[in-house]
Every structure is written in structure tokens, then in C-alpha cells.
């Protein structure tokens, strides 16, 4: 079976460790990174806002696109080294939550990390993209804490 591991800046290491621990020995591991167009898009947009400057070759968005590609390949390489098991690295382009769902189609397991408020247990520990993936995943999901999970004492008392 395929095990898809979503590699995201900041929280990827916990997912790589989870893959080492929980992926069955015979499984094919896919390290998935998604490069979102929004960051280069914002740079393109800021340049477009400078009316009259001409010189499309000075548009910083192009440079950011190239840098994003290099950064994604680097992150996948570091994650592959941390995983230290045979794995395929895939970099997709698009809205992260949609690309992860598409990549998880037919997979036997999807491994992702919490990326919201990680100081207490609760719904806010899921960011927007992770929430979408958990809600729409077409396969079993393993949701890990990027570091030691907070104790159950962090759950606020029920309202009276």
C-alpha cells in the first residue's frame, strides 16, 4: 500500500518519524510537498501595483517562483534523509489542501501534522489547510503532534 507523508515547513520532521514508526514494511512511502502559488502571486501582484514601472523582467515574482522550487526540493531531500527508508519525493503545485487530497486518493495511509495552536489539546490545534484535509481525506489519516502533545489538563473545563 501507499503511505503519503505530507511534508510542510516547520512540522515535517514529526511526519517523517511517524512514517518510520507506522508505515508497514512492505509499503511504498511518498513524501509529498505542495508549492502554493500564493506567495509568488503576492510578489507578482505587488510589482503589478507599481504602475508604470515597465520592465516585466524585474518582477520579483519570477525570482520567488525559482527560489520556491529550490526550497521545495531541499526540504524533500532533508525529509528523505530523516526518513532513511526508500521513498518517492513528489512536489505538487496548487492549493495545498486540494493537492494533498488529490495525492491521497487510493493511498492506504496519509500522515499529516497538527499546525494550529499547539499549546493545548483542542480543535484550534488544526490550521485551516489541515482541517480541510482531515475533513476530506479519502483514506485513513494519521494526525501527529509536531512535538510532545500537551497534557489532557490543557483541555478547558466544560462550561457549566
Amino acid at each position: 500500500m501507499d503511505v503519503v507523508v505530507w511534508i510542510v515547513e516547520g512540522t515535517w520532521r514529526a511526519c517523517a518519524h511517524a512514517a518510520r514508526t507506522f508505515a508497514p514494511p512492505s509499503s511504498r512511502i511518498v513524501l509529498l510537498h505542495v508549492t502554493a502559488p500564493d506567495v509568488p502571486g503576492a510578489a507578482h501582484g505587488a510589482f503589478a501595483g507599481l504602475l508604470g514601472r515597465g520592465h516585466p523582467e524585474r518582477d520579483p515574482g519570477h525570482q520567488v517562483e525559482e527560489l520556491a522550487e529550490v526550497a521545495a526540493q531541499h526540504l524533500l531531500a532533508v525529509a528523505a534523509a530523516e526518513l532513511d527508508l526508500p521513498a518517492t519525493a513528489v512536489n505538487r503545485h496548487g492549493r495545498p489542501e486540494e493537492e494533498v487530497i488529490a495525492a491521497a486518493e487510493g493511498a492506504g495511509l496519509l500522515i499529516i501534522a497538527r499546525d494550529g495552536d499547539r499549546t493545548r489539546l483542542g480543535p484550534k490545534s488544526l490550521g485551516h489547510a489541515t482541517r480541510f484535509v482531515v475533513d476530506h481525506a479519502p483514506c485513513p489519516v494519521l494526525l501527529v503532534w509536531p512535538e510532545q502533545a500537551p497534557g489532557i489538563a490543557s483541555i478547558p473545563p466544560p462550561p457549566r
Binding site: E9, G10, D38, V39, A43, F47, P60, A71, H74
Partner: peptide, 23 residues
């Protein structure tokens, strides 16, 4: 816009931070 933005992206991604807030 033209000169600092790419440097900020490069700095954030070399550190392994998510670049969006910084860009």
C-alpha cells in the same frame, strides 16, 4: 518590492520557516 522581497523569501526558506507571513 523588487529587491527585498526575494531576499526575504530566500532567508525564510533557508531557515526552514513558512515564507508566507514574511513575504
Amino acid at each position: 518590492v523588487v529587491l527585498l522581497t526575494p531576499v526575504v523569501f530566500a532567508t525564510a526558506s533557508r531557515l526552514g520557516a513558512r515564507p508566507k507571513p514574511h513575504v
